[in-house]
């Protein structure tokens, strides 16, 4: 989903970087506060970041005959809310830009805005909307939407940069969605299933009740004492 190095005009690149920056700064503060106030949540925070690392490294073939990778931001969104995913996702993007020549430094702001900002916030919105549904359904919906919306935003960013000569931005958006969306749909579903299994494992093994995860109720994460039976959400 990454926009490649140098593939956005300088003004666009600067604009997207400015748009993403406040979310990354705010998210970093939220992470620091989370760790300070709830040091027991460090493990889950590390798990959320690691899941993004793993999923965004997996280039998977899809039904369209091309490959793409999941984003991995949905699980952290469910566990901690969308704000923390801005810095965590940006770290992953920076790693890929510097060491994998994937994405880029000039397009880091645009990629962070799509993957680490809009994706998680859209996923969180779905998670909240589905809060009365079975928890697995809410998690699945959040993870799938966090993944898919990332690619919708990427398509929009590219469409803005490369408007179609006849149909303008909408026509170009359709073209880029055609490249990303159909490929991404099955991968998002796979990520959703993995996300449900992982959140269930993390929640039950840490003793946190699903409805008490910070994504729903900030600051309420409880970790069971050693040997204490875990609550199940």
């Amino acid at each position: 989903m990454h926009v490649s190095e140098g593939f956005l005009p300088p003004l666009h690149a600067a604009g997207w970087a400015l748009a993403a920056a406040p979310f990354v700064v705010h998210g970093s503060r939220v992470v620091v506060r989370q760790v300070r106030e709830h040091p027991e949540s460090r493990l889950l925070l590390a798990g959320a970041g690691a899941f993004t690392f793993v999923m965004s490294a997996m280039k998977l073939p899809s039904v369209t005959g091309s490959s793409s990778h999941p984003t991995g931001t949905g699980v952290g969104t469910v566990l901690f809310g969308p704000a923390v995913m801005a810095p965590l996702g940006t770290i992953v993007l920076l790693f890929q830009a510097l060491l994998l020549a994937h994405g880029g430094i000039t397009t880091l702001g645009a990629n962070a805005f799509s993957m680490a900002v809009v994706g998680p916030w859209a996923g969180w919105l779905v998670y909240r909307l589905l809060r009365r549904a079975p928890h697995a359904v809410a998690v699945f919906g959040a993870v799938v939407i966090a993944d898919l919306i990332t690619y919708v935003v990427t398509s929009f960013q590219l469409a803005l940069a490369y408007p179609d000569k006849v149909s303008g931005v909408p026509g170009s958006m359709e073209r880029f969605l055609g490249i990303f969306a159909i490929t991404q749909l099955p991968l998002a579903v796979v990520e959703g299933v993995i996300g449900v299994v992982l959140v269930r494992a993390l929640a039950s093994w840490s003793g946190a009740r699903a409805e008490e995860l910070p994504g729903l109720r900030p600051g309420s994460l409880e970790v069971a004492e050693a040997g204490e039976p875990a609550h199940h959400g």
Partner: peptide, 17 residues
């Protein structure tokens, strides 16, 4: 990248278990 992420995620899961 995946290996690093997998190692940390595995550590977290193992520690929680």
């Amino acid at each position: 990248q995946g290996g690093l992420g997998g190692a940390v995620l595995g550590y977290v899961l193992g520690a929680l278990r």
